[in-house]
């Protein structure tokens, strides 16, 4: 089984999703190659070569790949991936964007968002916002798969796989990058954090999210939000945890002023320990919380920041 993994990165840092992809790939087979496509991404390729279990790293370093435009990336992945048995990417907004193009142009189905490898052709994936798990078998010659990385552990580091440059490039004439507004934060990324504290509609406004700062600082936590808080404009979209936002599984998840709509639970219910702080004792979030505190968050949060 030869497996090609598409590395998740931002041209300077390799994202932890890539290490989790390697773990998923190891459950399929052991000839694992990683493709790093980007611009000025040599450091990323070096980090990828350091992941245990990786036997080769390809680097496609070209301006055409700087912003991960689906049209350009898909052509590259097809050119390189057409001789592999499996092509894997993370089910991030990057992977979700280009992978279906790869599948369609290879004339194979795609298996999205897998949470377990049953065998080389059979995988488990959640459907209906996680209300059911389907075990899916693929008869396609190339399996194109996106992986819910929160379901897999990180592979270890300490390797020195060879790095090979890929010159192939196609540039789409009808799609171009205009601008990006990326959130800059000193905090860990949601999908990589050990601890997450999230606020919901109960926070009442964006200013009140500062109440989470002290706690996040003390716990080294990432900060998240429910869809309701994002829709209301309290915080930006990249903080959304849930079925259509980010899927997370930290050691500790603290939900503050979040009622616990099923779409939110779908994004965080695999966290090891869940804490809910909500003044409504009937809020559904308490049904999944290991520790529930029925309290006014405006009283409880300063107390918690103090107590930690």
């Amino acid at each position: 089984m030869t497996i090609l993994i598409y590395a998740e990165h931002d041209n300077s840092q390799l994202k932890s999703e890539t290490l989790k992809l390697v773990t998923a790939a190891q459950a399929i087979g052991n000839d694992i190659h990683v493709l790093v496509a980007g611009k000025d991404c040599t450091d990323v390729a070096r980090k990828a070569a350091d992941i245990s279990g990786v036997s080769k790293v390809f680097i496609a370093d070209n301006a055409a790949y700087e912003y991960q435009l689906a049209e350009n990336i898909a052509e590259l992945v097809i050119e390189l991936g057409k001789d592999y048995n499996h092509i894997l990417s993370a089910a991030t907004t990057t992977g979700k964007n280009f992978m279906p193009r790869v599948a369609a142009l290879l004339d194979v189905a795609q298996i999205s968002d897998i949470i377990a490898v049953i065998s080389a052709d059979t995988f488990a994936r959640p459907i209906y916002a996680g209300n059911a798990i389907a075990t899916v078998q693929s008869a396609d010659t190339i399996k194109v798969i996106t992986v819910r990385t929160s379901a897999f552990d990180s592979a270890s580091e300490g390797n020195n796989a060879p790095i090979e440059a890929v010159e192939f490039v196609t540039v789409s004439n009808n799609s171009e990058f205009v601008s990006a507004e990326l959130t800059v934060s000193e905090r860990p990324e949601l999908t990589a954090a050990e601890v997450i504290i999230s606020g919901g509609r109960g926070m009442q406004n964006g200013e009140n999210f500062k109440l989470l700062d002290g706690i996040a600082d003390k716990l080294g936590a990432a900060m998240g939000a429910s869809r309701a808080a994002v829709d209301a404009g309290f915080v930006p979209n990249d903080m959304q945890v849930g079925q259509t936002g980010k899927i997370v599984a930290p050691q500790l998840y603290i939900a503050v002023g979040i009622s616990g709509a099923i779409q939110h639970l779908a994004g965080m219910k695999d966290s090891k320990v869940i804490v809910a702080i909500n003044k409504d004792e009937d809020a559904p979030i308490f049904q999944v919380a290991d520790y529930g505190l029925v309290a006014d968050l405006f009283v409880a949060l300063p107390e918690l920041a103090e107590a930690l």
């Binding site: 996680g130 209300n131 308490f286 999944v288």
Partner: peptide
């Protein structure tokens, strides 16, 4: 080319305990 072999309910998370105050939570 895809066949669903089976559908299963996800593992259910059990609700835990309610704590009285922040001190007990910590």
């Amino acid at each position: 080319k895809l066949t669903v072999l089976k559908y299963e309910a996800p593992a259910q998370r059990k609700g835990g305990v309610k704590v009285a105050d922040v001190a007990e939570l910590v």
